[in-house]
Amino acid sequence: MTSVTQSDLTVADIRARISGSSFYTAMRLMPKAEREAMFAIYMFCRLVDDIADDGTRPRPARAAALAQWREDIDALYAGRPAGQASFLLGSVHAFGLARADFLAVIDGMEMDVAADIRAPDLATLDLYCDRVAVAVGRLSTRVFGMEEAPGGELAHHLGRALQLTNILRDLDEDAGMGRLYLPRELLVQAGIGTTEPHAVIGDARVDQVCRTLAARSLEHFAAADRLMKSRPRGRLLAPRLMAAVYSALLQQMLVEGWAPPRRRVRIGKPHLIYLVIRCSVFG
């Protein structure tokens, strides 16, 4: 996949990438200021993720590109010309977005660039989830108008739930890039001795591994749901919808299992519309 730069990427490009997704649906339901801030956060995440996943460039070049992003974020918060990060300025000021969270996302991308992640231990996987998903959640909960403590707790649980669900859905795509995010301890527990991605996902015992990881994701979904039901301050329709969609994906995977051959599960448009109505009406 060819990387794109900020100058190449337009709002139309972003909408084309995510049109029809649950994320885009959730953003369309937000007031304009919040919607624009979420687009800016998404643009940042997409740009740095494209660098990490760009198999056409050597690792040193990708590391240098991420280092430039780090410098531009630092410049943005120091009030200096921020280069490719300039588009974030309005959202940073409007919602008090934290510099540390943008840098954490870059840290997560650097984990993918330093070496292809293959069967990390549970602690490393948790750190990765915190950087690439929970940090985005912390940025998002500021846009949603949540207070710091409940916002941080929601990001902690929902970010992990979403990222683990993505890992479980993207086994084959990740293996195609030489990556395997399933934790080593669970592979050993299932009797799988290799960490070679295609060998692992081709082993029928991978279903046991994925079901154990899915149980962790379900625990995080449940904790996030309890928090949202406590009615903290803020606009919670978007995180409610994301939780509903991704938990539905996970339940579908649990029914179908992960033993090869697999198919990548999806939420159809009628089901997505149903979830939007349910979240809008019942919360």
Score class of each variant (00 low, 15 high):
R142Y: 04
A259L: 06
S280A: 15
D126G: 02
G202R: 08
R57G: 00
C279Q: 14
Q208L: 13
V134L: 00
F44P: 10
P58Q: 05
L180T: 01
D54W: 03
T165M: 11
A244E: 05
S91F: 07
S7H: 09
H271G: 00
Y128F: 14
G55Y: 00
L186S: 05
V143K: 04
T195I: 14
A85M: 08
D170V: 08
P150D: 09
P270K: 03
A61L: 13
L241S: 03
V206N: 03
M177K: 13
R240E: 09
V255L: 13
A175W: 11
R205Q: 12
I73E: 02
M30S: 10
R266N: 10
A115H: 08
D225S: 14
A199G: 05
T5P: 06
V209K: 01
D54H: 04
A98L: 12
W258E: 03
T25I: 05
G191W: 07
V206S: 03
R15K: 13
I73Y: 02
T25E: 11
R278W: 08
R262P: 02
P150G: 10
D170F: 06
Q163S: 10
R179T: 10
I14H: 10
G191T: 03
S140D: 01
M177V: 00
E36R: 15
P270H: 04
R70Q: 13
Q84A: 15
L9E: 07
M177Y: 05
R35F: 06
S7A: 14
R28N: 12
T194W: 02
M38W: 08
G193W: 04
E34G: 09
P120E: 09
L76V: 05
D8Q: 15
D121A: 07
H157F: 13
R15F: 01
L168M: 07
L9N: 01
A244W: 02
R226I: 00
L254Y: 00
L168C: 07
V255F: 04
R46S: 07
M242G: 04
A135L: 12
A135N: 08
R235C: 04
M111E: 14
A64V: 06
V4Y: 11
S21P: 09
